[in-house]
Design a protein around this nucleic acid. Sequence first.
DNA 1: TTGCATTTAATGTAATTACATTTAATTTTG
DNA 2: CAAAATTAAATGTAATTACATTAAATGCAA
Lengths: 149, 149
Amino acid sequence: MEIASELQQSNFASEEAKAIVNVIFTGNWVTYQQQELLKPYDLTMQQYNVLRILRGQNGKPMTVLAIIERMLDRTSNASRLVDKLVEKKWVLRRECPNDRRAVDVLILPEGLALLEQIDEIQNQWAKRFAHMSQKDLTQLNELLDKLRN
Amino acid sequence: MEIASELQQSNFASEEAKAIVNVIFTGNWVTYQQQELLKPYDLTMQQYNVLRILRGQNGKPMTVLAIIERMLDRTSNASRLVDKLVEKKWVLRRECPNDRRAVDVLILPEGLALLEQIDEIQNQWAKRFAHMSQKDLTQLNELLDKLRN
DNA sequence: TTGCATTTAATGTAATTACATTTAATTTTG
DNA sequence: CAAAATTAAATGTAATTACATTAAATGCAA
């Protein structure tokens, strides 16, 4: 993305102002690449995110509400995201036994297999960050965490 | 955003894996706040971004293509973004004298006044980052730049 | 227990975004 | 110069997102 250099050139009023734009820009930059990476699998970032959350449950089902709480990108449309995943047979939706208002969502073996396949590609892709030292990465994580407080 | 703590708890395979999620998450986090901040002005982030790019021109007009090149979030719909800004009388669109295919876009005094008003609110909001030292901010900017290479 | 408030998910809708196509103008090339 | 290729912007459309509303189930209070 050539705009990166643009960001560097721009003269910002302060390091703070630059940091704000930089965080947004870099987030978009990574998101864009992830989207490209997922395109062949007919998965949007949001759908992928939900699948990974479900995998994290290790077989336990999750209600839609619980999924929303863990999503990177808050949205009220988890219902429709799950719809898409059900359509594609990657997850199962069934009535929650304890609470008939709620719906249990469960990742299927096909969904897990898909994720494993994508893991491979992710690992390949992540090599583009080989120039970041372990210290760099730790520091970056600390600073981002600190930014959010 | 309570999910922040969630991010901290999650056990990632590596600092690298965490950094990737962290950059996306923090970008979304800042974006979300910016959107909230802009809501009263009936401006989307994209529209705001275009307005600021135009302000950066100091009165000089810009073609739609030139705007696209500077946008934080690449999209082919700069035309329609400009539409919205024209509707709201914040910018002017006119045929480019050198090239009749192109369209010159120019920010109007009303647009500049709006931005100034928003600058105020941005400054207020930015106070929430007072806990970041100058060194922190510089380091964060350097690491984000380095991440993108 | 009945009625009311709350919770959970789904749905309706309008706006936005992504992606492809179209239109018009310009540039290139034979 | 005419035809073909390229460029700039607009438009069509399908999918996604944002936001509000609805429907159903549950919990709570009188």
